[in-house]
Design a protein around this nucleic acid. Structure first.
Lengths: 214, 214
DNA sequence: AAGAGAATGAAACAGATGTTTCACTAAATC
DNA sequence: GATTTAGTGAAACATCTGTTTCATTCTCTT
């Protein structure tokens, strides 16, 4: 227990390989043998450590979405604290930042392949139906509620229903950009400028502010 | 040649069944046997008429995306004609309408299962990587160029690069809404209002106008 | 150092997948 | 009406899928 057991390493290697491949080609399209080949592990290891492919998918999702969720809540709490010193209302720009920035942060932490992580996050939001692990669904539901409430206070002239739709649209902006950001570069042959993450974040926030306040 | 041959019927039946199933579960997850079962055709028929599964996917995409593309171009041309009678600049709202409405139109024409068609369109935009049939890619590229140009004239204060990104974001709004519109209803337990297509279109357009003009 | 338990590796499993084959039927052409 | 072609149906094909088995190796505890 005191030392890192070897098994934990291979578990980690499988998770990394799986995430990388899932990001590139989707959950269904990647086989266990491809994953274990890249992870330099045996096919049986997946079933031994996780219980099966579906369980591996859930593990990968939970493993890499949870930090984003908690980071979001943390940033929103900080913004709330800051707002409480004035009128108690969080500016839209800060709410959106709390919502979108965590991807950047976790990405930067995960080093190496940032674009791949972004793609993976976007894929989770688009690819998975209602098959998300229960653990993630609950956390997600709570988060949506918190952020809707914050936006509602900052945008009192926007009706509740309208706001829900606009938040949904903002989700779409983020998901699509994460997954297909590089495609824009391809299509425009680089005329859209270099896809710097911080700049892209600012662009997304500005756009969504415009949409939310419309 | 004068009469509709029987083979064309089964070809059509396969296309319909494939579209329906692809929309619900994605391209990779649906097997040929499921498709031919629903189409009441033989497994060999797919390879005989299309040449294989990949070719079938391409056929389904081309078959149902082309009307949308051409309809978009038509609506934009009409708006251009209308604009030429005044200052020659197409209002943003009309450009966005020309961009998004065709989905509604083709959906309404295709009768029966509108939500399924919407989901399929959204899936094409999200699911497929750069594996789109060449025919569609070219048409798509031309369309993007035309619409960027139209928006550029209406929004001279927005730089070219910025505009490309914002158009990309608008794409995301549409794709995400088409694919996951019903999920919003689930998550909010119906509190977001009933998902009427015309209303949703207006909501999307309003949101995107706000974002584009930000 | 020895033994118990965890982790691995290679092979085999049953099932599903896309594709092909070939005998057969329907339709079009002469 | 006979002949050639287009289209269909059922079965077999090889391959790949996720999963399981079991003997072996490694790691930790005593």
């Amino acid at each position: 227990m005191s030392k890192i057991r070897n098994s934990e390493e291979t578990k980690e290697r499988i998770l990394c390989a799986a995430q990388s491949l899932f990001a590139q080609r989707g959950f269904e399209a990647v086989s266990l043998r491809e994953i274990t080949a890249e992870a330099e592990a045996n096919v049986a290891a997946v079933n031994y450590h996780f219980g099966g492919k579906d369980a591996l998918i859930d593990a990968v999702i939970v493993r890499h979405m949870m930090p984003v969720m908690t980071e979001r809540m943390k940033l929103l709490a900080v913004a709330q604290q800051r707002a409480d010193e004035s009128d108690g209302v969080i500016p839209v720009v800060e709410t959106l930042d709390a919502f979108m920035r965590p991807f950047l942060m976790v990405m930067n932490e995960s080093g190496e392949n940032k674009a791949l992580f972004a793609k993976f996050c976007g894929r989770i939001m688009s690819d998975v139906g209602s098959n998300l692990p229960a653990e993630a669904v609950e956390q997600f539901s709570i988060m949506v509620q918190k952020f809707t409430q914050a936006l509602s206070q900052a945008l009192p002239h926007v009706g509740q229903q309208e706001l829900m739709w606009r938040l949904h649209f903002s989700f779409g902006v983020m998901a699509h950009t994460l997954m297909h950001g590089e495609r824009l570069v391809e299509v425009t042959k680089g005329a859209c400028g270099e896809p710097d993450f911080e700049t892209t974040l600012k662009r997304m926030i500005d756009y969504c502010i415009g949409g939310l306040e419309a």
